[in-house]
Structure formats: structure tokens, C-alpha cells
Nucleic acid binder design. Sequence first.
DNA 1: CTCACAATATATCAATTTGATATATTATGG
DNA 2: CCATAATATATCAAATTGATATATTGTGAG
Lengths: 181, 181
Amino acid sequence: MAKDRKIDLVILGLLSHEDLTGYDIKKRIDGSISFFWKGSFGSIYPALNEMEKSGLVKKKEAKKSSGREKIMYHITAAGRKVLADWLKDEQASNDLKYETLLKIYFGGSEDKAVTICNIEAFEKQIKENLELLKLYKENLESVLDEEGHINYYLTVTFGIDTYEAYLKWCTKAKKLLKGRR
Amino acid sequence: MAKDRKIDLVILGLLSHEDLTGYDIKKRIDGSISFFWKGSFGSIYPALNEMEKSGLVKKKEAKKSSGREKIMYHITAAGRKVLADWLKDEQASNDLKYETLLKIYFGGSEDKAVTICNIEAFEKQIKENLELLKLYKENLESVLDEEGHINYYLTVTFGIDTYEAYLKWCTKAKKLLKGRR
DNA sequence: CTCACAATATATCAATTTGATATATTATGG
DNA sequence: CCATAATATATCAAATTGATATATTGTGAG
């Protein structure tokens, strides 16, 4: 096993654009990336320490005069190599864990209202996130020609397209359930 | 924390229909459920043991005359209660972890061909799974009136609708990348 | 018929990840 | 000027994965 640590690649990917602290990395992951990946402090800080030991990143302890410790990380050439190799490897694990679908799947013996309620909660979640994604898209459309922005744009449109498909399915599903009550 | 064990609910959901062994449970999870949830032996067997201790399931050690040990599990009333409460609770964690999107997001500085390659690998994965889902759907359409089958059907159409949206996005994305090479 | 291989079956382990919590500092709004 | 939010690092138990160990039963090719 070992070297299944996907968080390493997320961190290296982020550091390939700019130097960041662990806290910064968490903020980036919680931003536009959060639609297709997650990451917690509990994985970020240990990963940074281990990658520093193995030479993929370098510490740049930017201690302010009086301030609290603040460890800035910088990607090394070795780190860039690991990142590039991963990008060129076309195999990818794409995993979905949707508790809503689990509840629908197992909710067949319950009253149909229970399933409808679960679909409506999902619908609400998706609508909120869709609004956010549409904002990202708008802001991106003006800077699409800048280096790397098309790729960022593509992940946003992926989110929008799938969320819109989800909402259409919600409408269809509720209609089907109500028709057969 | 504690009681974040989603695998418990998957197991209880499966046992609410029929008695199963841990091995059977793994097979069910790897079937039609695998499109929206995963589960490994390493989580199933410990969960079964702990749920037996807490009285949510009961062992029915169906030792064949000569055969190897085979532990059949049966859901208890307490187990059904836990399952029903979970189904009625509308909050749900819906998490997507798509390494492909991560590679697209971070692939902006690489050659566009790298991103296209990653999209094509994804496209292939999705096409294969879509064929499977369409087979499930066909088989279900004739038994849609049976108890609980609409719910199963809905999860399958969810998969089909989103996978079709993915494929449309793949075509669009490749066109956009090639146009701007 | 038999032998290798696939399928059935349970169990455990290291590595990974989550989600929570602990701790401390700095900025800010009422 | 004080409470709260934001910044910042770190650690831990619990959950999960993916691999591996072990053993039995069914089956198809020779």
C-alpha cells in the first residue's frame, strides 16, 4: 500500500501556484475545490510534515517580528515532479458517497412521504451550491484566456451541469412518487 | 463524535430485506449500491460484531453439517428502529471525491493534451458504468409496481441522468480545450 | 477423475481520512 | 475595551480503505 495519500497531490497542486501555510491550504480546499474534493486539518498538517521530510516541500518559516508562528510552504523541484507524474497518469478514483441515495434506496418500505422529504432536503442543498457555482462561472468568463483558467472553468461547468441534472431528476422523482402514492 | 458509522445503516438497510452473511453484504454493496456508496470487509465485519453486541442484529450461526463456519445475521426490532429513525432524518452527507476533476483543476499549466487524456479516461469509465445502469433500469421497468422497487428504480435513474450529463460535459470540455490549443 | 482455480467466507492490519477539540494570537465591531 | 471572529498549528479517537491471511467449497479443463 502506502502512497495512497491523495492529500499530498492536492497540497502540491495548490503550492505549484503560490506559497501557502497549512491554514491557507485548508481555505483553498474549502473554496471552489470543495465541490469535488475535501480535506481536513488532520490530514493537511501531517502531510506537510512528511512531505517536508521527503523533500517535496520546503519550510519558509516567516516569523513576523512579534507574531505567532506561521509556517509558509514552498514546492520543490522534486515536488513538481511528483505532481506532474500524477497529472500524466490517467488512472483516477472517482468516488461518490451520497447518503441521500442510500436513504432513497432503503426507504422503499417507509411511507413515500419520507422519500419525498429526503429528495427535497437534497434539492435544497443542491440549489444553494448551484447558485455559488454560477457566481464562480460568471467571474471566470472574463478571464478565460489567462493561463490555467480554462481548466478551473471546466471544473465549475462540470459542477453546474451535474447539479442541474440533479435538480431535473428531483422534479421527475417527486412526480413519479406522487403519481404512485 | 462516535456513531458516525454510516456502514451500520447500510448493513441494517440490507438486513431489513433478508438475512445475510458479511460476505453477502459485501456482494450487495458491490452491486447496484456501488454507484453511490462503497464498503469494505474491514468495515463490515467489525460493524457486524459491534451491532451484535449492542443488539441491533442477531447471529444465526447456520453451520452446515460439515461445512465452514457461516454466520448469518438477522435484524432485530431495535435495529429496525435505528434504520427507520435514520431514514426519517433528512440531513445527509453527500460527498463527491473525483480525482479526475482534481487533475483537471491542477492541470492548467501542463499541455492541454494531458487534460484531454484525463477527460477521455473518465469518459471511458462513465460509458462502461452507464451501460450497466441501463441494464438495471430495463430489468426494473417490468417490476416497478412491486413494494420498494420505485425507490430502487429512482437511484438507478439518478445514476443514468448524471452519467449522461457527465458525457455531455466531456464532449463540451474537449471541444473547448481543442479550440484554444 | 482430479487438479488447479474461482468463489465463498471470516478476520485483521497499517495507512488514510474525518471531525472534533485544544491552544494561542491577532484583528475588528459594538 | 471587550467579546467575538479569524488566523494558525497540532493532535486524537473513530471510521474507512485496501491489502493480506486463512480456509473451504464448487467447477471446468484436461
